[in-house]
Simulated assay, not measured.
Amino acid sequence: MTGTAGGWRCTGIRWGGGRPAIGWLGEGRGERSSALSYGQRLAFVAVGERHCPGVWRAGKRTPCPAGRTVPERAGSAQCAECARLDRSFSVAADTNAGDPRPYRVYLAWFGPGMVKVGITAEERGPVRLLEQGAVTWSWLGRGPLMAARRTEELLRAALGVPDRIAYARKRAVRAGLPDQAERAGEVAELHARAAGLEGWPESLERLECRVTDHAGAFGLAGLPVPGRVLAGLLPGAAVVGRLAGAAGPDLHFADGVVVDTRLLAGWELAAAPAGAVTDAPLTAVAPPAEGGGQAGQEGLF
Results as ranks from 00 to 15, higher is better:
A238E: 11
E268Q: 15
V240D: 11
A237G: 13
A231C: 03
G241D: 00
T261W: 10
L264H: 00
D250C: 13
E268L: 06
F253A: 11
P273G: 14
A270Q: 11
V239D: 00
G248F: 02
V257N: 04
L234V: 01
A254V: 09
V239Y: 00
A244M: 05
L269P: 02
D255H: 12
A270L: 08
R262P: 13
G266E: 10
A237P: 10
G256Y: 05
L234G: 09
A265C: 04
A271P: 02
L243K: 06
G241Q: 03
P249N: 10
A265E: 05
V259R: 07
T261Q: 11
V239M: 10
A271L: 08
R262Y: 07
L233G: 10
V257Q: 06
A254F: 14
A238N: 12
D260A: 15
L269K: 00
V257M: 14
G241W: 00
A254H: 12
V258P: 12
T261V: 03
V239S: 01
V259P: 13
R262F: 14
W267T: 14
G245D: 06
A244P: 00
A254W: 12
F253S: 08
P249F: 04
A265I: 01
L243E: 08
L234S: 12
A246R: 05
A265T: 01
A272N: 11
A274L: 14
A254L: 15
V257E: 04
L263H: 04
T261C: 13
E268W: 07
A270W: 03
A254S: 15
A247I: 02
G275M: 06
G275Y: 05
A246L: 12
A231V: 01
A272M: 12
A244H: 09
G275C: 11
A237W: 02
D260T: 08
G245Q: 07
G236V: 04
G266K: 03
T261Y: 08
F253R: 11
T261K: 06
G241P: 07
G256P: 09
V239T: 00
G266D: 06
G266T: 03
E268H: 11
